[in-house]
Write a protein that binds this DNA or RNA. Structure first.
Length: 818
DNA sequence: GGTCTGCATGCTCGC
DNA sequence: CGAGCATGCAGACCA
C-alpha cells in the first residue's frame, strides 16, 4: 500500500502502519482508513445511505449515542481533542473530565511515563483514575488545559495551535451546550463517570495495549493507579503485532483498578486452562469472562465452570441458517474428534439449564476443515442472541458437560435475575469500522469496581448494547431490524434524490416488449424537485432555493446538485437571483403545499414515486371531483427524468396501456395474486380495528355519550371505511381490484407494495392517471386555489389534523357520491 | 416457492 | 502468503 498520509489535516498521520483496510465495500473497493483519526484517503465520496447500509450508524463507544453520518470524513462522532486523539462530541465530558484530571498531574508525570505521544507529536495525558466530579468541570479549566496542552505540543507545526484552540473552545462550548440540552446524557455521563469508567477505557483504551507494554512499569509505580490493560497487553504481545502497530497513540491509557474488589470485574482474555492445542488458540478466542461472572455462573449451575473459548457471533452464525461456525482450532481442541463429515450430535447446556443438541460436523474446505454446529437456531432464539454477541463455550466440572454462555449482557442479566427480559428495541446498529479499530481489547476493567451484578443491573441499555457492539469483528455485518428500517427510510429518501448521472446516456433494452433504460453510471444524488405540468401540457419542475427558499420553475431536464440556489438558475435570467420574485404567487404556493402537505402527511416518508398513488389513495375517486390534482409528483421512476421513454416513466401509474386486463404475463399474475391477498389482509385488519373500537366503546360505556367531536368524526370515518369494505367481493374495492388487474406500477417499492396496493385499491386508477397528467395551473384553478377557494380539505384541516381530515372529507364525499 | 445442504469464493488476519 | 472463516450460491428437497 505504501506510505500514506492521512487526508485529515489535523491528523496527517503517515506511514502505512497507520493505516488499515477498512470494511469491504460491496460497490466500491475498499476504503482505507487512518488508524489515527478514521479518515479515509481514498474512495472518500460515499453516499450517506451507503454508510448506513454497510456500516450502520456510527456510535460513540463511550456514550452510545449515534449520529447520522453524512460523509466518511464526518461519520465519526468523534472530534479531535486538545490532548490528542479523538473524543465523542456527545460525551466529550468524559474526555474533559479525564483531561482536567490530567492537568492535575504534576509536571514530572510526563517523565514518569504518564504522558504518551502519538505519531504526530501530540502529548496525551494519561487518564488517571475515576474520581471526578463532573460539576467541577468548567470552561476555565478547559482553557487552562488547552494552554497546558498547547505548551506541550511543540510538534504540532502543521496547524495553527491558536486557531485550533479557538476552534476547540468553540466546539467545547457547543458540546457543553449540547450536553446541557441533553439531560439524558448528562445524567448518564455523571453516573457513568463513577460506575462506568470501565466502559470508557474499555473502548478508548484498547489501542494502547502495546503502549501499556512499552510504558515503563515505573509509571505504575509512580503511585498512580495505572497499569490497566497490561493484563491483556502481556497476552496480546504475543498474539498481535499488528495490534501493537496500530495502538501507539491516540487515547488515554486506561486506568488500572487496583483494588481487590475490582479484580473480579476485570475482563481478561486468558488462554484457556485446558484442551488440546490450547496454545494454538488465537487470543480472540480466549474467554474473557470475568471472575465474578464465572463465579456467578458456577454458582448458578452449581458446578465449576471452566471457560474454554469464546466466539463473537457473526451474522451468519446468528442468522436463520442455524449454523454456527466454530473456530477450527477450538473445535479440534475442545470438541470430540470427528472423522466423518456428517459429524456427531453434541449436547450443550445453556446457562438456564436447558440442554441443546447440535450437530457437530465439518465441511471440507480448501484442503482443510470448517467446523460447524448445526441446528443452533432454537438455542440462538431462546437465548435471544444476535450477531455481535459473544458466546463462550465452557466445560462444567465435574461431568465435562459443555456449557454455552452468552456474554450478551442481557443474557447475563437473565442469569442474574432469573427472568428473561424482552430484548429492547435496539436504537443503534453495528459499526464495523469501529470494531475494526477495536481489536481485541475487551478485557479491560469491566465495571469500574462494581460487582458484575451491580454493573449488569445498573448498566443502561445503551451500554449493554455497546458492549455487544464492540465485539463485532465481522465487517459484513448484520443490521438490526431498526437499522434495516433506517436503511429502508434512507432508501426511500434516496429514491427521491436519485438522478441519472448527467454524463451517462441510457441504453434502451427491450424486455417483454417493454423498453427499459439502463444507465451505465450509477445514479447521483441531486436536489429534490417537484415535477408539474402546465396547462399547455408542457412539463416543468420546481425547485426551492437553498438560500432564499423561493421556488423556481425549471425545465424538466434540469439536473440540480444537492445544494442549489437561485444563482444557479441558468435557465431563467430573470430568476437567477434570490432577489427576484418567486415564480408562483404566494397564494398558489400556499395552496399547493397545503394540499401537498396533506398528501404527504398521510404517507409520511413515502417516496415521491409513490406519492401520486398515495395521494390518490387518500383522495380517492373524489379526487376527480376535487378537480383532478396534478400537483407535483408523478409516478416516474426517481432515477429517470421526465421525457424518459422507458416503461417505468411512460406508463401511467397503473401501467395502463402496457398490460391489458387480460394480460397473463408473470408480473400481472403475481400482482393479481398479491393484490387479492392484500385485500383480504386489509379486510381482516379492518375487522380487527372495528372489533377494537367496539371494545373501546364498550369500555367507555355511558361516557360515550360525551364523545369528543374528533371521536365522533373518527367513528363516522371508520363506519365509512367499513361501509366500503362491507361491499365485499362485489363491492367497490374488489371491483377495483378486478378493474386493476393487469394494471401495473413497476415503480413500486417492494417495501411499500402492500400499502400502495391497499391504497390504490381505494381509488380509481383512471382518475389517478388523469390527475397525474393534468397541469398544475388547472389544478389550482379547478380547486379554487388562487382566485377562488381553497380546497375544502385544506380549509378544514385545522380541525382534525391534516392527513386525517383529507381522508375524512374524501371518504365522506365518496359516501355521498354513492 | 421456500428452505435446506454442501460447497465455493474471497476477505481478513496471522505468520 | 496462506489458513481460517464468513457468506454466497447452486442444487436438492419439500410443502
Amino acid at each position: 500500500m505504501g506510505s500514506k498520509i492521512c487526508m485529515n489535516e489535523v491528523c496527517r498521520a503517515t506511514t502505512s502502519s497507520e493505516w488499515k483496510k477498512g470494511w469491504g465495500l460491496k460497490s466500491g473497493g475498499f476504503a482505507t482508513l487512518c488508524y489515527n483519526c478514521g479518515s479515509a484517503y481514498e474512495n472518500s465520496v460515499f453516499c450517506e445511505s451507503f454508510h448506513r447500509e454497510e456500516s450502520g450508524w456510527r456510535e460513540c463507544r463511550v456514550c452510545g449515542k449515534r449520529i447520522h453520518c453524512g460523509c466518511i470524513a464526518s461519520r465519526f462522532l468523534h472530534e479531535y481533542m486538545d490532548f490528542g486523539g479523538v473524543g465523542c462530541i456527545n460525551c466529550a465530558k468524559h474526555m474533559e473530565i479525564h483531561l482536567v484530571q490530567s492537568t492535575q498531574i504534576p509536571g514530572d508525570a510526563i517523565s514518569n511515563g504518564t504522558y504518551v505521544t502519538n505519531g504526530i507529536g501530540d502529548v496525551h495525558p494519561i487518564v488517571v483514575e475515576n474520581r471526578i466530579n463532573d460539576e467541577n468541570f468548567s470552561m476555565e479549566r478547559l482553557l487552562q488545559l488547552t494552554k497546558t496542552v498547547g505548551a506541550n505540543e511543540p510538534g504540532r507545526s502543521f496547524h495553527s495551535q491558536k486557531r485550533e484552540t479557538v476552534e476547540r473552545n468553540r466546539q467545547f462550548q457547543n458540546r457543553t451546550q449540547r450536553l446541557a440540552e441533553s439531560s439524558v446524557f448528562i445524567k448518564t455521563d455523571n453516573s457513568r463517570a463513577k460506575q462506568g469508567v470501565k466502559d470508557v477505557y474499555e473502548t478508548l483504551a484498547q489501542p494502547h495495549l502495546s503502549i501499556s507494554l512499552s510504558t515503563p512499569l515505573g509509571s505504575n509505580s509512580s503511585g498512580l493507579p495505572f497499569a490497566a490493560g497490561i493484563v491483556e497487553g502481556s497476552e496480546q504481545s504475543k498474539g498481535s503485532s499488528d495490534q501493537g502497530q496500530r495502538s501507539r497513540n491516540i487515547f488515554p491509557k486506561p486506568p488500572v483498578l487496583g483494588s481487590e474488589q475490582n479484580k473480579g470485574a476485570v475482563r481478561i482474555a486468558r488462554p484457556p486452562a485446558e484442551g488440546r492445542g490450547r496454545n494454538q488458540l488465537l487470543p480472540r478466542y480466549w474467554p474473557r469472562i470475568t471472575e465474578q461472572e464465572l463465579q456467578q455462573l458456577s454458582g448458578d449451575l452449581k458446578s465449576t465452570i471452566i471457560p474454554l473459548f469464546e466466539k463473537v457471533l457473526s451474522a451468519s452464525d446468528a442468522g436463520r441458517i442455524g449454523r454456527l461456525v466454530l473456530p477450527k482450532a477450538c473445535a479440534e481442541a475442545y470438541f470430540p474428534p470427528i472423522n466423518q463429515s456428517e459429524g456427531i450430535p453434541i449436547r450443550i447446556q445453556d446457562i438456564k439449564g436447558n440442554e441443546w443438541t447440535f450437530q457437530f460436523r465439518f465441511w471440507p474446505n480448501n484442503n482443510s476443515r470448517m467446523y460447524v454446529l448445526e441446528g443452533v437456531t432454537p438455542c440462538i432464539q431462546s437465548l435471544q442472541v444476535q450477531a455481535g454477541d459473544t458466546v463462550t463455550f465452557s466445560r462444567r466440572d465435574p461431568g465435562g458437560q459443555l456449557v454455552i454462555v452468552v456474554l450478551n449482557s442481557l443474557c447475563i442479566f437473565h442469569m442474574l435475575t432469573s427472568r428473561i427480559p424482552k430484548r429492547p428495541a435496539l436504537p443503534h446498529s453495528d459499526s464495523p469500522g469501529e470494531t475494526s479499530l477495536s481489536g481485541h481489547a475487551d478485557n479491560l476493567p469491566s465495571n469500574g469496581g462494581k460487582t458484575s451484578d451491580d454493573s449488569v443491573q445498573r448498566l443502561p441499555t445503551p451500554i449493554l448494547e455497546k458492549k455487544k457492539m464492540k465485539n463485532i469483528k465481522n465487517k459484513r455485518l448484520l443490521m438490526h431490524n431498526d437499522d434495516a428500517m433506517e436503511l429502508r427510510i434512507t432508501w426511500e429518501e434516496a429514491q427521491e434524490l436519485f438522478r441519472p448521472s448527467p454524463t451517462s446516456k441510457p441504453s434502451v433494452v427491450m424486455i417483454e416488449d417493454h423498453a427499459f433504460e439502463e444507465f451505465e453510471e450509477p445514479p447521483i444524488f441531486g436536489k429534490r424537485t417537484i415535477f408539474t405540468s402546465r396547462i399547455s401540457g408542457e412539463q416543468e419542475q420546481m425547485a426551492q432555493c437553498d438560500s432564499c427558499s423561493k421556488w423556481r420553475r425549471l425545465p424538466v431536464h434540469a439536473l440540480l446538485s444537492a445544494k442549489w440556489t437561485c444563482s444557479e438558475n441558468i435557465w431563467d435570467a430573470n430568476r437567477c437571483s434570490c432577489s427576484a420574485p418567486e415564480d408562483i404567487n404566494p397564494r398558489d404556493l400556499d395552496a399547493f403545499f397545503r394540499v401537498n402537505k396533506d398528501n404527504k402527511a398521510s404517507k409520511d416518508g413515502e417516496p415521491s414515486g409513490l406519492d401520486a398513488l398515495a395521494t390518490a389513495a387518500v383522495l380517492g375517486d373524489n379526487m376527480g371531483d376535487m378537480g383532478e390534482s396534478s400537483v407535483g409528483v408523478t409516478t416516474r421512476h426517481p432515477r429517470h427524468r421526465p421525457g424518459c421513454s422507458c416503461i417505468v416513466c411512460i406508463q401511467p401509474p397503473s401501467g395502463k396501456g402496457k398490460h391489458q386486463p387480460t394480460c397473463k404475463c408473470n408480473v400481472c399474475l403475481t400482482v393479481r395474486r398479491r393484490f387479492k391477498t392484500l385485500m383480504m389482509r386489509k379486510k381482516k385488519r379492518q375487522s380487527e380495528r372495528e372489533a377494537e373500537l367496539l371494545d373501546q366503546a364498550k369500555d367507555k360505556g355511558p361516557a360515550n355519550v360525551g364523545l369528543a367531536d374528533e371521536d365522533i368524526a373518527g367513528h363516522a370515518l371508520l363506519r365509512m371505511i367499513q361501509t366500503e369494505n362491507a361491499a365485499g367481493p362485489s363491492g367497490n374495492q374488489l371491483e377495483l381490484a378486478e378493474a386493476n388487474k393487469g394494471q401495473l406500477d413497476l415503480n413500486c417499492d417492494p417495501h411499500h407494495e402492500d400499502d400502495m396496493l391497499e391504497e390504490a385499491a381505494g381509488m380509481s386508477l383512471t382518475t389517478l392517471i388523469n390527475a397525474a397528467s393534468l397541469p398544475l395551473d388547472m389544478y389550482f384553478g379547478s380547486n379554487g386555489v388562487g382566485p377562488g377557494l381553497l380546497p375544502q380539505a385544506a380549509d378544514e384541516s385545522d380541525g382534525y389534523g391534516e392527513g386525517g381530515l383529507v381522508s375524512g372529507n374524501v371518504l365522506q364525499n365518496k359516501g355521498e357520491d354513492r
